[in-house]
Amino acid sequence: MPRLPRPAGAAAVALALGLVAAAPAAGQEPLVTDARVLAHLDLAAGQTPENIALDQDGSAYLTFASARQVAHVTDDGRVRTRATLPAVAHAATPLLHSAAVTGIARAHDGTLYVNYATGTSATGVWRLSPGDAPERIAALPADGLPNGLALDERRGVLYVADSVRGTVWRVPLSGGTATAWARGAALAPLPAAPAGGFGANGVKLHRDAVWVSNTDRGTLLRIPVRADGAAGPVETRAGGLAGIDDFAFPGHGRSVLAALNPGNRVVLVRADGTVTTLLTVREGLSGPTSVAVRGRSVYVPSAASATRHDPNLLLARLRHLIGRG
C-alpha cells in the first residue's frame, strides 16, 4: 500500500533496528540471484506500482496507485497503460486523501480485477475485461481502504483486505454485494502511535486458506476457509515483520516472500518463523510494495513512496524451488 511519509532521524533509525531480517550466513549461497531492474518508472507521472499480477507469458500487470492506472510491463521492460480508472470528484480516501488503485488479480481468461479506493461511492472492486472499459462489480465502504486483492476462481469469489476497517471482504466474481468474511483485532490497525493506520494489507489464497499481512502489527496471518466457505479462526503465523506490505508464496509450502516497505527489503519467512533477507536497496529496491512468483522468477515492484527515487519493477531468480517448508 502507498505509505504515509515518516519522520526522519531517530524514528527511522528505530524502525530500521526493529527489522528482524538477517543476512545469509557467511559462505551460504544466496537463495535469490541475478537481480536486475526490469523497468524504471516515472515518479512524476504517478507511476508508483502498488500491486502486481502476472500473465501466463511472464509479463506483468501493475497498479499505479496515484495515477489510477493499470499498466502492462513486457518481459523486455516496455510499459504500456492498460486502463485508467475514472477520476473522482472530491476524493477523500482514508489515510491517502486521494483516489488510488491498489490490489490486482488476474483470472485465467485474462480478466483483471482491481481495488479502487476513493473515499466516495466509487470505492469498490472493478473489472477490466479484455477490450472493455473498466466497470465496477461491487461496492465497498467509502470510509474503508480496500488494499490487497486475491482471487479464488474455484469458489468464484474475490477476497479484499481493508486496511482501515480491519476486515477481509468477500465479493462474488460475477459481481454483487460484498460481505464481511473475516474481521477482528488481528486484522485491525493499531489504535495509537506509532501506528500508521494500515491494518490488513496484502492478501493471498494458498492451500485452502486466506493469508493476510497486517502492516501496523508486523504480522502474517492465516485464516482457514471452511468447507462451507466461511472463515475459520485467525492464526498468527509470523510476527516481528516491521512494515510488511504484500507477499507471495514461492512454493507449495508455507514459506513466504514478503515485501518490507519502509525497510527496503524482501525477506523469506519460513514456516518455523526464521526470517532471511533476500533483496535490499543494493539490488534496486526503493520502497517495495508487493511480490509475485512464477516458477523460479521473482518480481518486486517498488513505489518509492518514502524514498521518492526510482520507482521500478525488479526481476530476480530463485536458485532453487522452495519445498513444503
Rank of each mutant, 00 (worst) to 15 (best):
L285V: 08
Y299T: 03
G124R: 02
A292L: 11
D143Q: 13
D310F: 08
L19I: 13
G323A: 13
I52D: 02
P250R: 09
V298G: 06
D216W: 07
F198T: 11
I52K: 03
G284E: 08
L31K: 10
A14M: 14
R6H: 12
G325W: 05
A304G: 04
V291D: 00
D216T: 07
G240M: 04
T179R: 14
L278F: 08
L112R: 01
T33E: 15
D245K: 04
G199E: 05
A258N: 03
V70E: 01
S286Y: 07
A65Y: 02
L140T: 04
E135D: 12
P24S: 08
L257W: 04
L31R: 14
A182W: 00
G197A: 12
F249L: 08
T63G: 04
L268D: 02
D55L: 06
A258M: 05
V171I: 13
G295R: 13
Q69V: 02
L241Q: 03
V300R: 01
D162Y: 07
V13L: 15
T277W: 07
R136N: 01
F247D: 01
R36Y: 14
D57R: 06
T93N: 13
V13E: 15
T102P: 06
A209F: 01
G110V: 09
T63I: 04
R294A: 15
P49T: 08
D34F: 12
R3L: 14
R3V: 13
Q47F: 04
G176L: 11
V70I: 13
R296P: 11
V70Y: 03
R237H: 09
D76M: 07
H206W: 09
P86G: 12
E29N: 14
